[in-house]
Structure formats: structure tokens, C-alpha cells
């Protein structure tokens, strides 16, 4: 990932910063310029809650080079309390015991490194509660 792109995404990757449409209340994550529901352009900035429910998941056994050391691992869709669904790696778990409907909490983790000398990319992952 290019450094400017990572830097632009820090607010939503670090703090789960989202936009709540001032007109219809729809929550966009990450922030957008135009509300997809009502086309309004004014948003309140909110931080999403760090708790949610696992909707579905898949186990990655043959990982891409950046994630080889973490394989096998799960990637899931987690619905946060506000109803926003995020795609996230599921970490600190026994992948054989994962089930849809499990309660999850969001933790701050390393996502990947740009090699041993490049920038470390941080963000969110989900952990079973």
C-alpha cells in the first residue's frame, strides 16, 4: 500500500471513524463525500463502537506473501452495534471454534509490513469476546 493511501485511511483504520448523514442519519464507513441514501453532503464525524457480531467468515489457509506467517487465519464480516458491517481479520482465536453469531470486539493490530524496512500498517481486527 502506498504511504499516502495508508495515511489518508488512518482515521477509519485506527479509530473506526465514520460519517453520519445529517439529513437521513445513514452511517457511511469509511467516510464518503455524498450520502448513498439521500445524496446529502453534510456528515457528522462519529467513532463506531468496538463491539459487534460475527455474521460470516472464511478461513484462509494459503495466504498471500504478506500474511504467510499468520496462516491459517479467518476473515469475517462483523456487524457493529450501529449496524455497520466491516470486513476484518479474526485474530486470537481457535479457527475451528468460530461460529456465526459470536460476539466480537475490535482490537488495534498490525495488518502487514512493507517488508522489514518499510512502513508498518496498523488497523483493526476482531477478536472473539
Amino acid at each position: 500500500m502506498a504511504i499516502p493511501e495508508y495515511w489518508r485511511e488512518i482515521k477509519h483504520r485506527y479509530k473506526l471513524e465514520a460519517g453520519k448523514c445529517k439529513s437521513c442519519g445513514y452511517i457511511v464507513f469509511p467516510m464518503r463525500l455524498i450520502c448513498p441514501k439521500c445524496q446529502n453532503q453534510d456528515f457528522d464525524s462519529i467513532n463506531l463502537s468496538r463491539e459487534g457480531t460475527l455474521i460470516t467468515y472464511s478461513v484462509i489457509r494459503v495466504a498471500s506473501s504478506r500474511f504467510v506467517n499468520q496462516a491459517p487465519f479467518a476473515v469475517g464480516i462483523v456487524e457493529l452495534k450501529e449496524g455497520v458491517r466491516i470486513l476484518s481479520q479474526i485474530t486470537d482465536c481457535n479457527i475451528n471454534e468460530l461460529k456465526s453469531g459470536m460476539k466480537m470486539q475490535v482490537e488495534f493490530r498490525r495488518i502487514f509490513d512493507d517488508g522489514s524496512s518499510g512502513v508498518i500498517n496498523y488497523g483493526y481486527k476482531c477478536v472473539p469476546m
Binding site: Q89, F108, R109, R110, Y122
Partner: peptide, 16 residues
């Protein structure tokens, strides 16, 4: 520490 944890990630969790 898990492979995706380091001093920064643990510091963030403790601080939060």
C-alpha cells in the same frame, strides 16, 4: 505476543 501485536498495538489497547 501474537504475530500481529507489538509495543504499539498493546499500548493502544491499554491506553484505550
Amino acid at each position: 505476543p501474537a504475530p500481529d501485536q507489538d509495543t504499539i498495538t498493546m499500548s493502544v489497547e491499554a491506553a484505550r
